[in-house]
């Protein structure tokens, strides 16, 4: 039994019956994206020409395509693409104030995240809190320290992106952009990141710097004998 399973992963890459062309002479193994390559050794700047070089058996051949699917129109993309990256480049128009955000919070968020944003553990995360004890990013030494937007999150844009896509939990996607700006303003202000009379729009949100943004470092584990 065990023998049947072995090696399948590396071998069964080649698929027959593609739309004609230059499969000849290609070994299945060559077509497999390297199955055992550790990430450290991954090609940094592979292009799809590299992939062509080990073309799929029977496939369309170098530089050619299968031609599946239909073109994604601007409207299709606009419908789904709501993401906002750390530079805020994709932020929509609209604006909202801390005061409006606080009102919205009390109506739409408080029942789960609690009156002061302290959360309801273990299910409902804390959003607000700048408790002295939890300042200074000592989370590794004490699992009881509660992470909040103010004492942990590296980017303010993440609040906007996440609330817009996922909150409130029971009615995701129901908030307008103005409401999301207002809620983001409230959460940032209550976390002592922006002033209590602030109004956020795309420009203002792009400028917000989070207190602990510089604490995040790339993963330096690489395998090998060192335990990190």
């Amino acid at each position: 039994m065990r023998h049947i399973v072995i090696g399948l992963g590396a071998l069964v890459v080649a698929a027959c019956g593609g739309p004609g062309g230059a499969g000849e002479g290609t070994t299945p193994a060559a077509a497999a994206p390297a199955a055992v390559t550790p990430a450290a050794a991954m090609p940094a700047a592979a292009t799809f020409a590299d992939y062509d070089a080990g073309a799929i058996a029977g496939g369309p051949g170098a530089g050619k395509r299968y031609g599946f699917g239909r073109q994604a129109a601007k409207a299709d993309i606009a419908k789904w693409d709501t993401d906002v990256g750390p530079d805020g480049a994709e932020l929509p128009s609209g604006k909202g104030s801390v005061a409006e955000g606080e009102r919205l919070y009390m109506t739409h968020c408080m029942m789960c995240h609690n009156r002061k944003g302290e959360g309801l553990p273990p299910m409902y995360p804390a959003l607000i809190g700048r408790d002295e004890k939890a300042e200074g990013f000592h989370f590794a030494s004490d699992p009881k320290l509660v992470k909040t937007i103010g004492n942990y999150w590296p980017y303010a844009t993440t609040v906007f992106d996440y609330v817009k896509r996922a909150m409130p939990l029971t009615a995701p996607g129901s908030l307008t952009d103005n409401q999301v700006y207002a809620l983001t303003a409230y959460l940032l202000s209550a976390n002592k990141v922006i002033a209590a009379d602030a109004v956020l729009d795309a420009d203002a949100l792009r400028k917000v710097k989070m207190p602990y943004a510089d604490k995040f470092v790339p993963d330096d584990r690489k395998g090998g004998p060192e335990v990190k």
């Binding site: 200074g136 990013f137 000592h138 989370f139 590794a140 030494s141 992470k147 937007i149 942990y152 999150w153 590296p154 980017y155 993440t158 996440y162 604490k215 995040f216 470092v217 790339p218 993963d219 330096d220 584990r221």
Partner: peptide, 17 residues
């Protein structure tokens, strides 16, 4: 960012781990 980052004893947090 908020999740799936790993706080470390030197007061940093590993991202994209």
């Amino acid at each position: 960012t908020s999740k799936y980052t790993d706080p470390l004893p030197d007061g940093t947090a590993r991202e994209f781990s």
